[in-house]
Design a protein around this nucleic acid. Structure first.
Length: 462
RNA sequence: GGCCCCAUCGUCUAGUGGCCUAGGACACUACCCUCUCAAGGUAGAGACACGGGUUCGAAUCCCGUUGGGGCUGCCA
């Protein structure tokens, strides 16, 4: 173990790896590398209901793609439950925590009756002396008086009246630890010295510190809350509304070094006019205390320009290599299926061009015969769009089932007839590799976009 | 609503009391270059939210207002 600072990135596997998490990871990584510290990767998977193993793979893939190598981990909170159980027992034993059997409905109902001046938990079970049995939530007893404050490297001193902090949960009624508890225990156990995270955690920090003190963990870590990444509407980048998955940017042809460079410039600047900086320069010049405190809009156009600067700076040979590798990732999933059907290498192109073309060129005759001819085909496209939207996992077998169901819904019993209009609408051709795998490779978003486009064309009489 | 955080061109930012007539980049406009498109070059438009203080002097410090955001979950 080195003497330098210990920092961590603690993503939760409940969705794709978010660019905001990527930026936080990058800043932690830069700080660790610059200070000769240790960068820890910890997977916060305490929410067993929402965890998805494939998202863990996605996190590791995205981190590696971005070049953010970690020195320790990945640690999994799901494998450290004894630690949290022990901490909760200690809180219970000292009276710092207590059991609560209020339902969420009861809590909000009481808040409503009070006039809802201070929503949140009202301390109803504080002194009822309930046994912490299974089925009961365990809450931390927050002080009624005094203030909690901490010094933030980026924001200065933040102070909150303890009375404003409600008794928050530390253990679910099913026995699983809650975020605040597991987070604090692990930071202490892992000897994290600097907590560098998003601004959305500022208000969690006073709770964090209260727990930290109650558990007797000694000197606190240093805090640095990074400004949030915002969308054009100046709202926190959200999974639902915005394109936030790091891997989406990879798939669209952004270079990891360009994304990294751009992300580094969101909230930080080298202090002069340079905007293209090598990793070594970032490591050398990054200053945590110089990070701005105001939120930053993630502007894809600017990212594009940074990306194109990198692209142009390549040697031609490098560009060929990088482009070749990217091109390959798109059609490689279909390689074996394509192989069985081609007579020349040129046909590899015609069988996979739909994966690359921004705009399909559909032969008028094919369109007339394959889509426009049967009234039911329009219904097939509509039904397929709907069912594809509802699919949980975008996999060939599932797409197959959804297409069969869409065909039946549209009154087309034969699978062949159901897939024909979809194939033409989505790939622009009536022949090609098996459709399900093709759609899987294309991706759901682009598949849906092409179905919508085909439907518009039909409606406008095309 | 409550608590917390924030505030320089449309966007990312430089600026840490005089160097600011506020600089750069993206995007935008015009022109040049040019077989097209990019790239490149030149020029242009474009910001210190507002009001009070402090100071010889304020984008920079203080207070207030306004505006924006975050949190307010048996999610993280």
């Amino acid at each position: 173990m080195t003497d330098g600072p210990r920092v961590r990135i603690a993503p939760s596997p409940t969705g794709f790896f978010h660019v905001g998490t990527g930026r936080t990871a990058l800043f932690n990584w830069l700080y660790a590398r610059q200070q000769g510290g240790t960068f820890v990767l910890r997977i916060e998977d305490t929410d067993t209901a929402r965890n998805r193993p494939e998202h863990v793979d996605g996190i590791l893939r995205a981190m590696q793609w971005l070049g953010l190598d970690w020195d320790e981990g990945p640690y999994f909170q799901s494998e450290r439950t004894a630690l949290y159980a022990d901490a909760i027992e200690r809180l219970l034993a000292s009276g710092a925590a207590y059991a609560c059997d209020c339902t969420p409905d009861a809590v909000s109902e009481r808040a409503r009756q009070r006039g809802d001046k201070t929503p949140g938990y009202d301390g109803f079970c504080r002194d009822r002396g309930l046994e912490p049995l299974a089925g009961r939530l365990v809450r931390f007893r927050t002080p009624d008086t005094g203030q909690s404050s901490f010094d933030d490297v980026i924001r200065g001193t933040v102070t909150v009246d303890n009375a404003k902090i409600e008794d928050f949960g530390v253990r679910k009624s099913n026995g699983d630890p809650l975020f605040l508890l597991a987070n604090v225990v692990d930071d202490a156990e892992m000897a994290i010295t600097h907590v560098i995270r998003g601004e959305d955690h500022v208000s969690n920090t006073s709770k964090y510190l209260l727990l930290w003190e109650a558990l007797g963990y000694g000197p606190r870590p240093v805090f640095a809350h990074l400004p949030l990444l915002l969308n054009e509407a100046r709202k926190k980048l959200s999974k639902r509304r915005d394109k936030v998955a790091v891997e989406d940017y990879r798939d669209e042809g952004y270079l990891p070094e360009a994304l990294r460079n751009y992300l580094a410039l969101l909230g930080w600047s080298p202090g002069d006019d340079r905007e293209i900086l090598t990793l070594d320069e970032l490591v050398a010049e990054f200053r945590l205390e110089d990070v701005k405190s105001a939120g930053a809009i993630f502007d894809e156009r600017k990212l594009q320009s940074v990306n194109s600067e990198y692209l142009r700076a390549f040697t031609v040979d490098d560009l060929v290599d990088r482009a070749q590798a990217w091109l390959l990732t798109r059609w490689q999933p279909l390689a074996a299926l394509v192989q069985e059907r081609v007579r020349t290498l040129a046909e590899v192109y015609s069988m996979t061009d739909f994966l690359y073309l921004p705009q399909l060129v559909v032969d008028a005759e094919e369109w007339a015969r394959g889509v426009r001819k049967h009234p039911a085909f329009a219904a097939v496209l509509a039904a397929a769009s709907k069912r594809y939207t509802e699919i949980d996992e975008w996999k060939a077998a599932v797409i197959h089932d959804a297409t069969v169901a869409a065909g039946e819904e549209a009154g087309v019993a034969q699978l062949g007839k159901a897939q024909a209009p979809v194939r033409l609408a989505v790939t622009g051709r009536s022949v090609g590799p098996p459709l399900w795998e093709s759609l899987e490779a294309l991706g759901r978003d682009r598949t849906l976009a092409r179905l919508a486009e085909a439907q518009r064309r039909l409606e406008s009489g095309g």
